[in-house]
Amino acid sequence: MCGIAGILYKGSAAADAGVGKALIDMLDGCQHRGPDSTGFSLYRDPVPGHLRLRFIVGDGAEARAAIGRVKTKLTEFQAKIVEEEHKGSSFAVLVKFDGDLQTFSFEMEHAAKLSSIGESLDIIKDLGGAHDVDNVYKIGNFKGTHGIGHVRLATESDVAPEATHPFWATGFSDISIVHNGQITNYYKMRRRLEKQGYFFNTDNDSELIAVYLADKLKHGFSLKEALKTSIDDLDGTFSFLVSTKDEIGYAKDKLAAKPMVKYEDDKIIAIASEEVSLNRLFPGRALNTSEPAPGTYDTWQRSISA
């Protein structure tokens, strides 16, 4: 019920690329597919030995209470806050932490709604269109090599920040997903993953894809191999984008039921639900785009070292 977009800048100058502005433009271009909420997965510079966490805390007294719970929990885990920021409905921290990430993240869930954890990953999502979210979080200024984003049409669940994409792979650092479609074997796959000890933060099928891929990566698969198996293991209609610290990738179901268009040149690879989004990057220019074939997947790696 949505539109998706992702971009990766290639080459050595990529670190200073305007990935924030590019994602805003692309998501604004397909906002008709989802006017209710908008989200961005951005990758900030990692600080060794540190983690970034972002929580959805709401506002007012509710927010103050949630932030209090987060801080208490962080103290329990001896995670020392280096930076903190409370903007819009979210609370973000950079903490010094070197314990077990999975236990830490499952526990932090109990403090407040966690939207992302990563050395680099920062998922910013809130109600409204791309420009509304930008007005609060100033995403347009963000520089980086790559990122993905999503516009949501809320049909089944509420219009709420926590139901907004992108989804983080709960329990894993730096992996995020944006997805258009429906996974029909959701419960079967979820039960399989839960048996392995994973915890699900929402009932959203996009979170399932994120955890599924993260599990594959944990077992030594490359992102490309994980995408390949996802096409066989996941049933339903889907076009999704995945991003990690260093890569972005896509997978598309065998029925080609959901749209996806890509544009690639020497400098960028950009993928979106509709060409109208890609065109926003190059107004007035006719692009040589292509549509990934049904049942295909691919990945692109950023070329500079972190």
């Binding site: 509709e274 109208v276 065109n279 926003r280 007035g284």
Partner: peptide
């Protein structure tokens, strides 16, 4: 000009005229 892959260009036209779209069109 500047269609930039927008949707619905030319929808509902019922006359035999020529329309040249200088770029990409959407849905």
């Amino acid at each position: 000009l500047n269609p930039d892959a927008r949707h619905h260009i030319g929808v509902g036209l019922t006359h035999p005229v020529n329309v040249h779209i200088r770029g990409s069109a959407g849905y």
